[in-house]
């Protein structure tokens, strides 16, 4: 517990984040570039979907990270509410912009893929609708945070909001099983292993690794920026 509390110190966490940032950026470029070039130029076309399947290398990493990052926010919010350490709320704020970006990219690439596969840009399908709700939850998080002048109140309100919003995560995940859906069922993380052909799976895993490293780099950078802004505000307005 003592070790955990040491890591929860914003200055210690900031130093660790600064060290890990370079590794994460390198990983993002190496894995991401290899996976995307492999997927775009060399991976085979799907027997049913043809060339449009290449959007999988963008859509699946974005979709996975949109929920994974929100999950991280929910865990950090729970940590903040239980332990009352501001670092947890700081992690939540640092992760949120990348989560919003990934959710937006998932919706856009999904829409383009939908037009090619289903002939429609958008359908009010359970998976699509629950992900759109997640997008609005991310927007709501930023909107709620901007409402408060007092940092402590903002941290408390947004942590509760994020935890309530986490109800959407299992709905996103299981929507394709609970309701009749145009969206295909889980093909990567499912019982009995992945159903994706290895020729498509290998570049997909590289893209997933690249996107994860990118999200980590972006979150660490945002963490650093928030820490600097907090220090700057304390210097400029020491009494507030």
């Amino acid at each position: 517990m003592k070790q955990l509390l040491r890591w929860a110190n914003p200055s210690v966490a900031g130093k660790v984040a600064a060290r890990l940032r370079g590794v994460c950026l390198l990983g993002a470029i190496l894995f991401g570039a290899t996976g995307l070039v492999w997927g775009f130029f060399f991976a085979p076309a799907d027997y049913l979907q043809g060339e449009s399947v290449r959007i999988i290398y963008l859509h699946v990493p974005a979709a996975t990270l949109s929920t994974l990052l929100y999950g991280t926010m929910a865990v950090a919010s729970l940590g903040f509410l239980v332990l009352r350490l501001p670092s947890f709320a700081l992690v939540c704020r640092a992760v949120a912009p990348t989560g919003l970006l990934m959710t937006a990219l998932c919706l856009v690439t999904g829409s383009l893929w939908g037009k090619l596969s289903w002939g429609a840009w958008w359908v009010w399908d359970a998976r699509l609708t629950s992900l759109l709700v997640l997008f609005f939850i991310y927007i709501g998080y930023f909107a709620l945070h901007s409402l408060f002048v007092d940092g402590a109140r903002a941290r408390l309100a947004t942590s509760v909001f994020v935890l309530v919003g986490a109800v959407d995560l299992p709905i996103v995940k299981f929507s394709v099983e609970w309701w009749y859906s145009l969206h295909q069922p889980a093909s990567l993380l499912r019982k009995g292993g992945s159903s994706v052909h290895p020729d498509l799976l290998q570049p997909l895993l590289l893209c997933l690794a690249g996107a994860t490293f990118f999200a980590a780099w972006a979150s660490f950078t945002a963490f650093d920026n928030i820490s600097m802004r907090t220090r700057l505000q304390r210097l400029l307005h020491p009494l507030s």
């Binding site: 995307l36 060339e51 963008l58 974005a62 937006a104 690439t109 383009l112 893929w113 037009k115």
Partner: peptide
């Protein structure tokens, strides 16, 4: 040789990541 929407998806994705960074 690829469908235009696939190329658009890649261009949008890479531009978004670059601008965000």
């Amino acid at each position: 040789s690829l469908p235009a929407l696939v190329v658009v998806a890649y261009a949008l994705f890479l531009c978004a990541l670059l601008l965000f960074s």
